[in-house]
């Protein structure tokens, strides 16, 4: 564990609390992509199967359980409690275009051709693109509630912080590198660049998140 990873994980936690706060206070999941949230459940379940057979640390287990539980809870809120505020007609990204390539990539690139390792790889590849339905929705509507942009910013910061974490680990842990996680992580962080540009130049200056027409 190092500071970058810890702050990254805390940012990830924060993003989930921001999202829950947004849904509960506005009593609405407007502007949130159900597809992206469903992909995150898939990611966490596929990756954290090792909860059943491997113990890393209390921190690790608690975080994994939290990420699974909170992501399932968010789906429940969207699908049942605040269902009328969820508008599937603007959540139109075709996730089969993400799932298919991720299945294929995980079958080719994995650390061992076993069910759990392929699922782990799949979860890494899928996480890297899971935000796309959400960003696509944002692009389509051209605007977002400020709180929703804080959610996305926290998620982006989490991903960005994992990069110095890998550099730090490479230096301090004698050249240790996880090529699958790093490659997918760089792609994932890259997807946030456009968003961050608007976030920093507009939202943090007190303006509404609006994309140019």
């Amino acid at each position: 564990m190092n500071l970058f990873r810890l702050l990254g994980d805390l940012s990830h936690l924060a993003s989930i609390f921001i999202l829950l706060h947004k849904i509960q206070t506005t009593r609405s999941c407007r502007g949130i992509s159900f597809k992206t949230q469903a992909l995150y459940v898939t990611v966490f379940v596929a990756r954290y199967l090792d909860l059943f057979y491997r113990y890393v640390s209390l921190y690790n287990s608690v975080m994994k359980l939290f990420f699974i539980a909170s992501s399932v809870y968010i789906l429940y809120l969207m699908k049942y409690k605040y269902r009328p505020t969820n508008d599937p007609s603007i959540d139109t990204f075709r996730i089969e275009y993400l799932l298919g390539p991720c299945v294929l990539l995980s079958l080719i690139f994995n650390y061992k051709f076993s069910v759990t390792e392929v699922l782990w790889s799949f979860s890494i590849f899928l996480e890297s693109v899971a935000i796309l339905p959400q960003l696509f929705m944002l692009q389509r509507t051209g605007e977002a509630e400020t709180i929703t942009t804080h959610y996305l910013a926290a998620l982006g910061v989490y991903r960005a912080l994992y990069i110095p974490n890998w550099i730090y680990r490479y230096i301090t842990e004698d050249g240790v590198v996880d090529p699958i996680a790093v490659t997918a992580g760089l792609v994932q962080t890259g997807l946030y660049i456009d968003f961050f540009y608007v976030y920093f130049t507009k939202v943090l200056q007190g303006q509404k998140f609006e994309l140019p027409a």
Binding site: V56, S57, F67, S114
Partner: peptide, 10 residues
């Protein structure tokens, strides 16, 4: 048999 990699990151 080769051991499975321990993934210690979240």
């Amino acid at each position: 048999p080769e051991e499975e990699k321990t993934h210690d990151e979240l």
